[in-house]
Design a protein around this nucleic acid. Structure first.
Lengths: 235, 235
DNA sequence: CGCCATACTGACAAAAACTGTCAGTAATGA
DNA sequence: TCATTACTGACAGTTTTTGTCAGTATGGCG
């Protein structure tokens, strides 16, 4: 086997096997000697891969030269930072964490100058709006929505009474400081918007409504638009 | 030179030189014969690169195997979409365009299932807050901020009087529906926050304040934080 | 159609690179 | 200390690669 081919295969192994990977595992996988593995690791390092190797532990790929610099402009980096920083402030902890993670990933792939732009962005997001407290697992709600599963929700209306609703959730709208779920309400047999801070509990019914979410959402948004002001019917 | 090294260099040339690249150019750049270039191209193709080659025209890299699918989770994609869609709505026109562009780029690198998640995202952003009209070129203001250039601004205060201020802009804060520039005000010799909708005009003074923006911004934010509420001094 | 500019392929001898084995060094954690 | 692993240099034999040469093919243009 040509060394050049094998180097590509080694990169593949280093990317796909969880760290640490020992030289022995690599040698077996590539059917070469351990000495050759050491040489190949050296070649990969010369080519820009940052591969940590600790005696008694094994190798881990900490920087992948195959990851080309992401071709984002300065404006694009600023848009990214602003958008994701805003998401970090909203009321879904899983989503906030995901936003931070995206920033870290993008940052890792940027050339140094753009990394600086990202880290010291001119744009900052800061919200002063009071945020109603949300007590449900928003990530789970998002997931049910995405996977087109019917939900039963305990909903507190404006008067404080709790009603039980069966809904097909279509989207979650971030409307300034409020999170609003757009859904087909099976009690009213019509589209409704439900504020997430007024949902005190929810569970899946076991029913699905696949694959109609996108079309229904389109209809709901058109209907709400026709009524001027998307949250005019918060129930 | 080891072939494996040269293959990496050839990929670099193919990525960075605008198409078409002739075998002759590659041969010269890599200091090998044309026959070797043909062989290397073959090796790169075997390794997954899609390289078009037309007689009389040259080569172009149409698909780069080094581009791994972007490793974003579903949550991360949703965070991205939400954040960038918000920027599309609230950002200055250049920034809004950049946000759309980022989404397109990210989408292009995603596996199909995640492309669908992105295109039909459960999460939507919709703002109902009244937005004061901004009449300056915000992208130019951003740029001056980034490049640490002093500005002279015509500022309308709360009473409607226009004052001329000389500032060192440090950041632009998206504070709900308002855009606020944090700056060192050279008139007051202190940090101030200026609402962008009250800036009726600005121009560069020709002075710079490099490389102090980041440190000054840190100090400004600490000062504003100490005062409880970051826009308590909008001037 | 012929010409030009370019991509493409096979063959071969000489040159270069690579390999596994062996011997020895080093680091970390229990 | 021991076990587990990474690391380096040297060498003879093996494998791969190279440039040269000869020939094929394609698209665009006059």
């Amino acid at each position: 086997m040509a060394k050049s081919d094998r180097l590509l295969q080694m990169m593949h192994l280093l990317r796909s096997i969880p760290a640490p990977v020992t030289a022995e595992v690599l040698a077996e996988g590539l059917e070469v000697s351990i000495r050759t593995v050491y040489r190949d690791i050296e070649s990969l390092r010369a080519a820009g891969a940052v591969i940590d190797g600790e005696a008694g532990y094994g190798y881990s790929l900490t920087e992948d030269p195959a990851l080309p610099p992401m071709m984002f402009s300065v404006d694009e980096v600023e848009a990214l930072v602003l958008g994701l920083r805003e998401v970090e402030q909203v009321g879904d902890p899983v989503l906030a964490q995901a936003a931070a993670s995206v920033l870290a990933k993008v940052n890792a792939g940027l050339p140094q100058a753009l990394q600086r732009t990202l880290e010291h962005s001119v744009l900052r997001a800061k919200s002063f709006l009071p945020r109603p407290e949300i007590n449900i697992d928003v990530a789970a709600f998002r997931r049910a929505t995405r996977e087109e599963r019917e939900l039963e929700i305990d909903y507190v209306d404006a008067k404080g009474a709790i009603t039980l609703r069966r809904i097909q959730p279509l989207a979650i709208i971030y409307a300034d400081a409020k999170l609003v779920a757009v859904a087909m309400c099976l009690l009213r047999d019509d589209f409704r918007a439900f504020r997430l801070d007024r949902i005190v509990g929810f569970r899946e019914t076991g029913q699905g409504f696949s694959p109609r979410r996108v079309a229904m959402l389109r209809a709901a948004l058109a209907q709400f638009r026709g009524e001027v002001g998307g949250d005019s019917r918060p129930v």
